[in-house]
Design a binder for these strands. Sequence first.
DNA 1: TTGAAAGCGCTAACAC
DNA 2: GTGTTAGCGCTTTCAA
Lengths: 340, 340
Amino acid sequence: MKQSPVANRSVTMEDVAREAGVSRALVSLVMRESPKVSPAKRAAVLEAAAALGYSPNRLASRLASHRTKTLGVLFLDLHNSVFADIYDGITEGLAGSGNQLMVAVGSADPGTELEAVRSFVDLRADGVLLAGYTGTSGELAAALRGTPAVVITRELEADGVDSVLTDDFQSGVLAVQHLYELGHRRIAHVDISDWLPYTARREGYLHAMEQFGLEPMLVHSDMTERGGRQVMENFLASGSALPTAIFTHNDLTAIGVMEALHAHGVAVPDDVAVVGCDNIEVAASPLIGLTSIDQHAGELGRAAAEVILARIANPGGATITRKLPPALMVRKSTATDKKQ
Amino acid sequence: MKQSPVANRSVTMEDVAREAGVSRALVSLVMRESPKVSPAKRAAVLEAAAALGYSPNRLASRLASHRTKTLGVLFLDLHNSVFADIYDGITEGLAGSGNQLMVAVGSADPGTELEAVRSFVDLRADGVLLAGYTGTSGELAAALRGTPAVVITRELEADGVDSVLTDDFQSGVLAVQHLYELGHRRIAHVDISDWLPYTARREGYLHAMEQFGLEPMLVHSDMTERGGRQVMENFLASGSALPTAIFTHNDLTAIGVMEALHAHGVAVPDDVAVVGCDNIEVAASPLIGLTSIDQHAGELGRAAAEVILARIANPGGATITRKLPPALMVRKSTATDKKQ
DNA sequence: TTGAAAGCGCTAACAC
DNA sequence: GTGTTAGCGCTTTCAA
């Protein structure tokens, strides 16, 4: 019985088999492009499938085969283009491996993030990549239930969980060093909420400030452009003396800070120098010209892909941590402190 | 037989049932939080599950229940933050509906896009949202095999496929109108490759130019910042006379154009005015100050979510098209033509 | 090469 | 409330 070729998702392999006059198993072989099927039967099956508008049910095939060839990827924030760069790196690193990707977005909320991880695990992803994760290692390990995972941009202590990141402590050091060399002494840092586990940049900043015998100035923000602008607006409104330089947790925050400075007629870099972190696309734009610390996001994605593939191939190995050295990218937002 | 609580993904419901001394069906009810389970048995099951490190297999449950409560979402380009805005709108619009999301990224390649759609369909997504799609309606319909879908940012003729978009033709008209009113007469348009199906903005531009009796000037680019910069560099190198204003297909392109102008000492807006389209976050930044046509990306996402939910609830209804009016956002990249 | 039969891990009636 | 019995649509031995 022929049906309209405009398909019905509930046509089964059985239907195709009947239509083609073969067994269900043979249809299965054809669908999986097995070489051991005669050209004649193969053609018959394909024709029957097309005629019925057959659509293989991947849920069923994955269930029966115990293989999904699928990785889950979680992103912290789609508005930060550093994650787009990481994504590109991941797809490059996975090219040719025959893996599918399931993507989810967490919005910096541990609850949402863990929910996404559980979902990946329940759907039997072969592995999980977390491009940003704000929860604890214990919760993550529990949610993973043994599924291999790689955390990107952070180092996590949990077995079965590898890490791929840039040396954020070093990034903080580099930023301060750069500013110090330009003659700056009053260097502030806009970091992120205390409860977030991304503290290394701040620690690097604090360490370097201490090394240089300088007084640290810390302000909290939330990793967003709006947050950076807000914080700087408040600071300017407070009437406190401005620092001569500001290092921010990330580029988005730096841009927000620059916007507020701009709105109040404070010149960058002449009145205040600004250094961001991540080196996202817009930071490099000549229109913005933000000095930043390159995280090598693309490379992080590629490395994470490699690591998860290795881990899936060899689940037993020791925990892997890959930490890349950051790189200072000097642009027009920093210059010699002219008021020293 | 107790196992380590550090989980094994292949512990089944049967194992939990045995451990708890109940039937498999009861375990299933507990997992789905059914109210008709006695507190005692419920506790026993939960305990057994925890002890064995049980992880429900969602592939199996979806297969058996014929319900996935999952929507597939495809994005054209993660580097363009307009898609992050659309994503936010979608999650808002879906809030409380109990739907999960599967995300994929297409990179403006019809092959990749269709592959992603097929994957969603094969995994039995209840519906598919395409935030940008560059293929044909025929190919899409074939890949969907009857799965409800909504195309965002484009109007597509295919049954079962609804559309949610901004009136792009009108966006082109608005841009030209704005520039005309500022006294500009030599207005160029940087659009996108001929083969891409996003032609409405160009058509709006051409229509308005004709209405005003002006000579159109078209240049092709590729929707990216880099592409916009490239095109403008080439134009400047060619030595041709500059237009007094440029309207670009999107904001990314506009920013690229402004970068090239900036690099060559051409002042915006005094020498050349620039108008983008989409109204993405950075365009609104005072540091960039790009005049743009707001696409209401968040609203598009919310509307698409509503439409797909309605379509899933009522598969039979007539095709829906929701077209929002665009809005001009004037910023410092446009000003009166001073050379007229 | 092809087919028959036995699952994969779960849900869904239906009976108790 | 709880257990029994059939499947869901596919893959996988194992024979033929």
